[in-house]
Amino acid sequence: MADRTGMVEKRGAGLWLTHLGLIIGLLFVFFPIWLAFVASTVTQAEIVRPPMPLLPGDQFLENYKRALFSGINAPVAWMMFNSLIMAMGIALGKIVISLLSAFAIVYFKFPGRKTFFWLIFLTLMLPVEVRIVPTYEVVAGFGMLNSYSGLIFPLIASATATFLFRQFFMTVPDELAEAARVDGAKPMRFFWDILLPMSRTNIAALFVILFIYGWNQYLWPLLITTDPSMNTIVMGIKQMFPSGDDTADWPVIMATSILAMIPPVIVVVSMQRLFVRGLVDSEK
């Protein structure tokens, strides 16, 4: 009995130490975000005059109103809308194309299907930054500069998502496909009624990752948009930093940074359970 009590005590001590380590790590991660939030609620003078306050000030509404409805080239609210359209388009486009590509590679027998899969997989070595000049020429040739289609379409192909869906489809028992065929289900009916529901957690996990990927895009939007009304929020934050001897409006910059974090946080929190299951569960 004494040994068992000692084991429980050791386990309890280890549990407390684990939680203590997690709390300390969380404080290290959260403290810069807290400082940014505090800076977005005070005046310019309070930020530039040390020491910087650690508690929120009384300028919350004023600073966030200025951040949302004013900007260097376009209102922040409009830039957030552009980023939302781009992130949703990229995430949904990548998932749809990858699902259909993986379905075709796994369930349809055609000459060279393995070759096509490995060609898709090899594109992982050619990110947008490597092929940005020819991609820009193609987009410009189709007249998609300064448009949502130009922001979205060149980025919706995803070798990673195709690979992940292919690997998952290969774990689906062949008996399911055979039973659907016996029941007279067409290939797309099998895909829609069986494979798609089974892939729900995978789709959720990829959606979270791909939404954040699209939301944080900077180089591609910077290259193909010259109209200020097409600026994204990441571009807007960079444009708010002064050049030369100008003074930065730090409360508005910090408020814009906090606003830019809200949509990705909402996506992660709202899909957290499916996201974790999609990454760690062996049975989807």
Rank of each mutant, 00 (worst) to 15 (best):
M1K: 14
M1T: 14
A2Q: 15
D3N: 13
R4N: 14
V8W: 00
A13G: 01
A13D: 01
G21P: 04
L22H: 05
L26I: 02
F31M: 14
S40L: 05
T41N: 05
A45R: 13
P51E: 07
L55S: 06
D58C: 00
L61R: 00
N63T: 05
N73C: 00
N73R: 06
I85M: 09
G93R: 08
G93Q: 06
V96G: 07
V96Y: 07
V96L: 14
I97L: 15
L100H: 07
A102S: 12
V139W: 00
G143D: 06
S147N: 08
S158H: 02
S158N: 12
A159V: 00
T160A: 15
A161P: 08
M170Q: 15
V172W: 03
K186G: 02
R189E: 14
M198V: 09
S199R: 09
N202E: 11
A205L: 08
A205C: 11
L206P: 01
Y213V: 10
Y213G: 10
L219E: 05
W220I: 02
S229I: 11
K238T: 13
G244R: 03
D246V: 09
D246Y: 10
D246E: 14
A248F: 02
W250M: 09
M261W: 08
I262H: 06
V268W: 00
S270T: 15
Q272G: 10
R273G: 11
V276G: 05
L279W: 11
V280C: 01
E283I: 15
K284P: 01
